[in-house]
Design a protein around this nucleic acid. Sequence first.
DNA 1: GTTCCACTGGAAGACTAGGTTT
DNA 2: AAACCTAGTCTTCCAGTGGAAC
Length: 332
Amino acid sequence: MIEDARVLRDEFVPREVEHRDSEVNHLASVLAPITDGKPASTALLTGPTGTGKTCIAQFTVGRLRRAHLDVEYQYVNCWQNYSRFRALYSILEDLGRTIDIHRRSTPRDELIERLAEYDGPPCVVILDEADQLEDEGVLYDLHALSGFSMLLIANDEATLLADADERLTSRVRGCEHVRFDRYTVSELTAILKARAWRGLESGAIERSELRAIADAAAGDARVAISILRSAARRAQRENAERITADLLEAAIPSAQKEVRRKALDTLTPHQRALYDIVADREAIEPGTLYDAYRERVDDPKTNRTVRNYLRKMTQYDLIVSEGTSRDRLYRV
DNA sequence: GTTCCACTGGAAGACTAGGTTT
DNA sequence: AAACCTAGTCTTCCAGTGGAAC
């Protein structure tokens, strides 16, 4: 059934992309100065999840690197590296400049100094989920360094600039902006077809089934691929020769569960306890939630910390909060 | 309309873990 | 071994919000 599992992974970057020619060309033109050794201007890529932002960024940089030897590139996921220190450290780490730098006891200034000393080929830094940065200072830091060009990826411009100051706002407004829209069903079908063709045995899935997946994914390529992956895995397990409509029916909810389970795994025991309490009811008000939390765990954290947890969990889309002050409610 | 108060989230500082220097 | 760093987490303190009760 599965011939090349890599193709079905989330992080896979295909050799050819479907239906994103104008975005690729736009981005490539922004990066073009790099090939002459000049710094490229910052590019901002925005759009909903699963519209190919990360994929297109990596694809375009990858293509540039195939054509030109002297281009470096770094990928930083700001979701995991949300502090200024961690983001900078992550870049240095991949450049191999951290040999004598340690995660603790080295001040941030030294990281910047070290980056300033970088004298290799021009480097494109992809800051994925840039709106998750707690301190946008990284953007200044990198901007000030001549050897580095930035590709910022965010869901929308507004959240990225939510608490940015004047200087940053005008700077981001001035940079090249590439917008991504949701895929249509036929575009998604084409993407899935390309993946299935390379990843699965031929004849493993029919066009009508691919279309059904595309339909269920609602324009989100990540969801679509994860459904295909989940279906292929099931088919493999059951020794089926083809992915049938029945298999798909089971794969769609299980792909959604997988996403949720992965997010839950990253929670600390305290956060998990909070989630379980919220999940137990229809909706819960903050006061009762905190009381229940104190009942449930040993050594409970303070109310303020719990509020930080809840905020983080809403960002993860694990829970939603409704209302602003007296009328606040939490639910899953 | 005014007052009350449960709730939010920013700011500053204490505390902790893990590292270096003396 | 002790003194001293730093980043990250958690707590303390507090001003601001906006429904609810009066």
